[in-house]
């Protein structure tokens, strides 16, 4: 916690698209269908896939970047020495969820013809403000709330409705994280009937 950054073992890379692979006719459609099935975990959702895959990949790339940062943030929390069991176990569990999200997002980007960015080699977190377990929980809760809003703002943008459905599934998971973290902080876990 003495340094201002956390180092994670991966090279920084800017997300790019292999545009040519979007232009391969039926191949693109086939990849898109497979990606949908993979992301949603339901092969039946692969039917009828079409639309602007490049735009969808850009949305997925943004989600992937946010998930990778969340993974690093939980790593920071887990290694901080500030978290006590069972909060530490909770953080590790949530980090595992974000890893699953990131893995499937990266795979889907690849299947759609894009090139998923690797996680940054370091992230700039406000370490100087994290001095207690409560600080870490509040920081994590803020990220999770932001993730809920980010997915909420992304879902309507997907051209592929199956991808939107799958992203909404991730949104639900992020919302549960946020609620549990609020509970751990002694706050009302579900502060309102709607999220925004």
């Amino acid at each position: 916690m003495s340094e201002s950054q956390i180092i994670v073992p991966a090279s920084a890379e800017i997300p790019t698209l292999r545009r040519r692979s979007f232009l391969t006719g039926l191949g693109g459609l086939t990849l898109s269908a497979a990606a949908v099935a993979m992301l949603a975990g339901k092969e039946s959702l692969a039917a009828g896939t079409s639309g602007n895959a490049e735009a969808d990949v850009n949305i997925l790339a943004g989600a992937l970047a946010a998930e990778q940062e969340a993974i690093a943030a939980y790593q920071l929390g887990a290694e901080s020495g500030l978290l006590q069991k069972p909060v530490l176990d909770l953080a590790v569990t949530f980090q595992g969820h974000h890893k699953e999200h990131a893995d499937v997002l990266a795979s889907t980007i690849s299947k759609l013809g894009g090139k998923p960015a690797k996680a940054k080699s370091s992230y700039d977190f406000p370490v100087e403000k994290l001095k207690s377990q409560r600080d870490v929980l509040e920081f994590a809760a803020g990220l999770e709330k932001g993730a809920v809003s980010a997915y909420l703002g992304a879902v309507p943008l997907f051209d592929n409705r199956d991808l939107a459905t799958a992203a909404a599934s991730i949104l639900g998971d992020e919302a549960m994280h946020w609620a549990v973290l609020r509970q751990a902080l002694g706050l009302a876990p579900v502060p309102s009937a709607f999220v925004s």
Binding site: E69, F125, G142, L143, K145, G146, S149, A150
Partner: peptide, 15 residues
């Protein structure tokens, strides 16, 4: 602005 926290902060470049 809390809605932006997944990707933005005031002081730091993030996503």
């Amino acid at each position: 602005y809390q809605r932006c926290f997944a990707c933005h902060s005031v002081e730091r470049n993030r996503t």
